[in-house]
């Protein structure tokens, strides 16, 4: 079982790396959305600093959302998903493997890049560490939740906008806690409560969400 799972993760990562433009698109999207904030609200450092945690987090959530449509769609279109279901792997594990590959290639770059964007909006030192930590804990949860939507949307014509309607409400708790962690780091109280909550969300989502994704995949393949 582990061998096939490993094959799958390696295959997915190498596929995404082969299509480098996908990673570049998502990363560029992340940067552009973040730069929209100073352009929209003006260059005053104080306002930007107050806006920074939310701004970076909203940009990350949207970038995660737009990266989702490739998660299962390609494999669904060319029949690989059928073969995956027929292979004797437990489908939730397969789903988890695919989500992990997706996060490694499209979520991790956002985490790595986030301090740069945070810095440009006026976050400093410890706040940048917290920003990065909150995204490192939060974006996997976003990928997991989004995967449910992506699996349900297979074969549905009205793509992107509907996906946003399905997935964004589920993102809200992560967004609140994640940006809350950075805000707290800027004030007197430490970010540890928020970070623990994010960790708890990840710990709960990790075993449960793949079950829902597997169910959704079965429905879509039917």
């Amino acid at each position: 079982m582990w061998r096939s799972l490993w094959t799958l993760v390696r295959r997915d990562v190498s596929l995404i790396v082969m299509r480098r433009q996908d990673i570049l698109t998502v990363v560029a999207f992340f940067i552009i959305v973040t730069t929209l904030f100073p352009l929209a609200v003006g260059p005053e450092p104080e306002i930007l600093r107050a806006l920074a945690p939310g701004g970076v987090w909203v940009a990350a959530a949207l970038a995660s959302l737009i990266s989702l449509d490739r998660l299962f769609a390609d494999d669904w279109r060319d029949g690989t998903l059928e073969q995956i279901v027929l292979s004797h792997q437990p489908l939730p594990m397969v789903a988890l493997g695919k989500i992990a590959a997706h996060w490694l290639s499209l979520g991790l770059p956002l985490v790595i890049l986030s301090p740069l964007l945070g810095y440009s909006l006026g976050l400093r030192g410890f706040e940048l560490v917290v920003l990065m930590g909150s995204l490192a804990l939060g974006t996997p949860v976003l990928s997991l939740l989004g995967a449910t939507g992506a699996a349900l949307m297979l074969g549905v014509r009205a793509g992107g906008a509907l996906m946003a309607l399905l997935v964004l409400p589920l993102y809200i708790p992560v967004l609140i806690i994640g940006s809350g962690a950075v805000s707290e780091a800027m004030h007197q109280a430490g970010p540890y409560a928020h970070l623990s909550l994010l960790g708890a969300m990840l710990a709960i989502a990790l075993p449960l969400v793949p079950l829902a994704v597997a169910g959704a995949l079965r429905i879509s393949l039917d």
């Binding site: 949307m153 549905v156 014509r157 509907l162 959704a216 429905i219």
Partner: peptide, 21 residues
């Protein structure tokens, strides 16, 4: 979202199951 997903899936039974999930 629930109602939109239902109407977006062509096959009624699949749409129903997707929406239930």
């Amino acid at each position: 979202g629930y109602m939109a997903l239902r109407t977006a899936v062509d096959d009624r039974e699949n749409g129903a199951r997707a929406a239930s999930l």
